[in-house]
Structures are given as structure tokens and as C-alpha cells.
Simulated scan of single mutants.
Amino acid sequence: MRANRSRIITIATILLVIAGLAGAATALIRTSRSTGGATAGRAGDRPGSIDLARSVADWTSRFGPGHGYQPPRRADREGVAQAVGLLLDGHRGQAEQLLSQRDFTLRTVVDQVSGRAFAEIADRTEEAATPRGWGRIYLDLGHGRHWSVQVPHPLSDQNSEQVGVGVLRGTPGGILVIAGAHRKSGRGDSADVAHRRDTVFDAVCAELARRGLPGVQVHGFADDSAPGYDVVASTGRGTAGRSDGRLLADALRGKGFAVCRAWARSCPLEGRENVQGGLADTEDLAFLHVEFAHAVRDDAARRARAVAAVGTITARWARGA
């Protein structure tokens, strides 16, 4: 009798242990599914968690003149731009399907520095032997999207992409559009996206302009191209951003920069032929074309001050002012 009771207790104990292990395994599977396989809870270990600046730097470091760009077809340009519009309207599934048809990916990433979540739209051919060079877009997922920062000449205008990342991080509600190749990577000027309408970059910027989003476009110049100036601030060929331009120039001056104000005097690099600025003008939309000297872009502290100055305008746009 006692032997039977001992066997029953032993069997029951084994069954309880098995049940406990099964429950723990189920919980682990659920956790793994919900976190993409990550089990650590720190921000830096979450699925899709990246240092946005480092990720962009790693990507753009592969750019170079003479290679890495293929002109997109009209259907490709319009398809990516339409997908961005769908994402802005909250139709992520449709956007993802359309992007996949154009060989783009859509994923959510969490920036370790700002702590904010962004939708990342990226060209799948980035890692290929012959990349197309059609660019990336980052959209703030946690806030209403009110403005854009555009980087048409990454690497070519050295660290202009890092200025763009800094501006995106500094103000909620932004959209960062980065060209996907060196400006001299294509045949002729085919990859110079600031001066062409037949690019994915321009199609996306045009979609944002049609939706009434103001934008700031970041450029860079060699120090001897505008002697005596750290920054050239312009509204391109339009005037809708004139008040924002004045505020930006004042903010830059307050950070210790010498600014050439293209609406007040003749400046080099005024960006009047910039096609994104031209479209903004037709939409009567604020557009700022900002050129930073190499000495500003190449120094982390000075670059941070420049980003903070631009942030005074993007914060104003985010408030709807």
C-alpha cells in the first residue's frame, strides 16, 4: 500500500515538473515571438534597435562616384512614393506590399539615442554587388508627421547625412529622406537628385510636398566656396519660407555661425535651381535650402550646434506654427 502511494506521489511529481517545464517553454516562445527573438529588456537590445547615426554612416560609407546607381523607371518612382503616402495614411500592410513589389523593405526600428520608433523604408539592393542606389526614408511612428528633412548628396556633401539624422532626432514628427548614392555615381548627372525629377528621392519629396509638409534640405560646401561664411541659408526660388528662413538665420547666428542670407543679399549656392524647392514654390510651401561649410559638418560640436539651430524651425513646424 505504501509502495503504491509512493509510486503515485512520484508520478504526480514528475507530471507537475513536466507541466511546469512546458509552461515555461510556452512563455519563452511567446516572449521570443513578441520580441523578435530578443529577451533582454534594455532599449539597446530591443528588436530592430539601432543607433540611427551609425546605421546611416555604415550604409553611406559604401557610396562612391562612378558606380552604385541605376535610374528608376517611372513605375518604380511612383510606387515608392505611393507607398510612403499609404504609410502616412496608416495603411501599413498595403504600403509594405507595394514596397515589396518595388524591391524595398519596410521595418520598424527603435533609435537608441532618441528612444523613438521609426519606420525604415530601404532599397533591398543596398547589399547587392550592383546596388540601384534609390535611397532610404525614415518616418517617426510615435507622432504626427509634420515636416521633412532631406539629404540629397550624402557622403558627397560629407556628413550632411549626419546633420539630417540629428535634425530628425531633435524634433518629433519628422520624416528623413536620404538619397541612395553618391551624386556622381550615375551617368552624367542622373544621380544628382537635387536637380532631377526622375528619381525616387524627388518622387518621395513631391508626395510630401503635395501633402503640405514643409521641408529643410541639407547641403554642404567647401570652405573656400563661400569665404567668410559658415552657412548659406536660402528659400530656393520660393518665398513661402521667408519668415522661417529669418528665424533659422537668427538661430544659427546665435550659435556663433556667420550666415549669408540669400533673400537679403547675393550669396553663392542659393539653390534656386533645386527641383524640390521649385515644387515647394508651386505648392506655396515653406522650403529651406541650407548649405553648411565643411568646417561645420566635420566638427561634431559645431555640427551639434547647427542641428540645434535647425531644430528651432522644425519644432515650430511640429507645433503647426
Rank of each mutant, 00 (worst) to 15 (best):
R302N: 03
V275S: 02
Q150T: 12
A318Y: 08
D140K: 12
C260Y: 09
S100Q: 15
D298G: 03
T108N: 05
S6M: 08
K255F: 00
I29P: 00
D298A: 12
R187V: 12
G90D: 09
S32G: 06
R237G: 01
R74L: 08
Q82F: 00
E207R: 14
P131Q: 07
V56Q: 11
A306F: 06
I178C: 03
A19K: 08
D45V: 01
V218C: 09
H91E: 15
L88S: 06
R74M: 01
T13K: 08
K184F: 10
A40R: 14
G133K: 09
L141Y: 04
H67E: 10
A262G: 01
R30F: 03
S225A: 15
W147M: 05
H153Y: 04
G44Q: 13
L139R: 05
F292N: 13
S114D: 09
D76L: 13
D244T: 03
L106G: 02
K184G: 09
Q158V: 10
E96R: 15
G241F: 02
G142T: 11
G245K: 09
V200W: 10
L21T: 11
T31L: 13
V200F: 00
R197N: 10
S6T: 06
I50Y: 06
G174R: 11
R92W: 01
L288A: 01
V193H: 05
A301S: 14
R5E: 13
V204A: 01
W263G: 00
A206E: 10
D192F: 02
R62N: 11
V167Y: 06
E161R: 13
A222D: 07
R92I: 02
V165T: 07
S266M: 05
G220F: 07
R272W: 02
G320A: 07
R30A: 13
R62L: 09
T10V: 07
R77A: 08
P227M: 05
P47F: 07
R33W: 07
R77D: 02
L213P: 01
V177W: 04
L168C: 02
I175N: 05
C205W: 00
S32K: 13
D58P: 03
V177R: 11
L168Y: 09
E127T: 15
A43Q: 09
R319G: 14
S185I: 02
R92N: 01
A25Y: 11
D244N: 12
V149S: 02
T314A: 03
E291F: 10
I178K: 04
R316T: 13
R210A: 06
E78N: 04
R124G: 00
H195F: 06
H67I: 01
A300W: 03
R237V: 11
R211V: 04
A315K: 12
S114V: 04
D244Y: 11
D45K: 14
V177Q: 11
G320C: 06
E207A: 14
G278Y: 01
A181P: 03
V296P: 03
G20W: 08
Q217D: 07
A206S: 10
L168F: 08
V163L: 15
S234K: 09
G271I: 04
S100I: 00
S266E: 13
G93P: 00
L141K: 14
L106M: 12
A81C: 02
T35D: 03
G115W: 05
I8M: 03
E126Y: 08
S266Q: 14
V109W: 04
G320W: 13
